[in-house]
Simulated scan of single mutants.
Amino acid sequence: MNCKITVTVLILCLAFATLSEGMSGKSLGTELRCQCIKTESRFIPPKMIGNVELFPSGPHCKDVEVIATLKTGQKICLNPTSPWVKIMIDAIMQNKKP
């Protein structure tokens, strides 16, 4: 009987550890590393882009990251130094100002 209780407690502890590990970091919206490994410089027509997220550099990543979500759902990391991306970021920032 003692063996069954020990095994049950061990399984519950492992399940809790697995669930709590899965909830940390990404699911809470806090990435602890760069999200973009490779960036795209080619022009993407604005009509294909559904959303753009701008992540400033910080302790999680030394680079500014620009992530575009296409209307198809695909996410693409854009090169923040590309001229067309700079123009797009400036336009987004202008629209956010009151």
Rank of each mutant, 00 (worst) to 15 (best):
C13P: 00
K96W: 06
S41N: 11
D90E: 15
P56I: 00
H60Y: 04
L78Y: 05
E65D: 05
F16R: 07
N95Q: 13
K75L: 01
Q74E: 14
I37R: 09
K4G: 01
G29L: 08
L10Q: 03
V7L: 15
T81P: 00
L19P: 00
G25Q: 12
K71V: 11
P59N: 07
L12V: 11
N2M: 04
L10H: 03
K38S: 14
L70H: 06
F43G: 00
N79H: 11
F16N: 05
K62G: 03
T39R: 12
Q35A: 10
E65N: 11
A91N: 15
H60S: 15
C77G: 04
P45E: 12
P46S: 13
L10W: 06
L19Q: 07
R42T: 13
C34T: 11
S57L: 05
M1R: 10
Q74N: 04
G58T: 05
T18A: 14
K62V: 11
K96M: 14
V66Q: 07
G50L: 10
A68R: 08
C3I: 10
I37D: 08
E40R: 09
K4R: 13
K75Q: 15
Q74V: 09
T6S: 11
V7R: 07
T72Q: 04
S20Y: 12
P59T: 12
I67P: 02
T39V: 15
M88Y: 11
T72L: 09
G73T: 04
M23K: 13
C61M: 07
S20R: 12
G58L: 05
E31C: 12
P98L: 08
S82T: 10
I87Y: 10
G73Q: 08
G29C: 11
K26L: 13
E65R: 06
T18G: 05
K47D: 13
N51Q: 13
F55H: 09
S41R: 10
I67F: 04
C13W: 01
C34Y: 01
S24M: 08
H60E: 14
G58F: 04
L70I: 02
L19G: 02
G58W: 09
T30N: 06
P59W: 12
S20I: 09
L78Q: 04
L70F: 06
K62L: 12
G58V: 10
C77Y: 03
L78I: 06
S27L: 15
P80K: 06
V9S: 07
E65F: 03
K26H: 05
N51A: 14
D63V: 02
L12D: 01
F43D: 10
P45C: 05
A15P: 00
T6K: 11
I11G: 04
F16P: 00
V85D: 08
N95M: 12
S27N: 12
D63Y: 11
F55N: 08
I5L: 14
G29T: 02
G58C: 02
K62W: 02
K4C: 08
G58K: 01
K75S: 12
K26N: 03
I89N: 02
A15L: 15
T18W: 05
I37P: 00
V7F: 14
K62I: 10
S57P: 13
K62P: 13
K38T: 07
S24H: 11
I89K: 13
C36P: 03
K96Q: 14
I92A: 08
I11M: 15
A15V: 12
T69H: 01
L70P: 07
W84V: 13
